[in-house]
């Protein structure tokens, strides 16, 4: 079974750090979480069959955005990591600037100490 690790506020929402899931793709893995953690929790991670703009998912350390997105295949030994990219409890960005919704890089940037 693949292991899903939650970070930051998502961990708090899940009530646990890791969960084991059996799934073929990232999408099905996140859907399975609804059964093991709660349907409300699963709703935090997938909306309208897409990741909310503030949720990042890594498969074995690679952001699924650079793989096949939610269709990325998942194998039993894989490790998924799920965290907020800056919204609701994670330092890294602001809502207005995420995913090109706000000003471009000329006038919007993010730094971290």
């Amino acid at each position: 079974m693949a292991v899903v690790m939650f970070l930051g506020d998502i961990r708090r929402a899940a009530g646990c750090a890791t969960v084991a899931v059996e799934a073929d793709t990232v999408a099905s893995a996140l859907a399975v979480l609804g059964a093991s953690v709660g349907s409300g929790f699963a709703g935090l991670l997938v909306r309208d069959r897409a990741l909310p703009p503030d949720v990042e998912v890594l498969l074995n350390g690679r952001n699924i955005a650079f793989l096949d997105g939610l269709d990325t295949p998942v194998r039993p030994a894989d490790r998924l990591t799920v965290f907020y990219s800056g919204l609701r409890g994670f330092p890294g960005g602001s809502a207005g600037s995420a995913r090109g919704q706000g000003p471009g890089p000329r006038d919007r940037f993010v730094l971290l100490l």
Partner: peptide, 8 residues
């Protein structure tokens, strides 16, 4: 910022 968090 861009390499991990995707911002902007």
């Amino acid at each position: 910022s861009v390499e991990v968090f995707g911002i902007p």
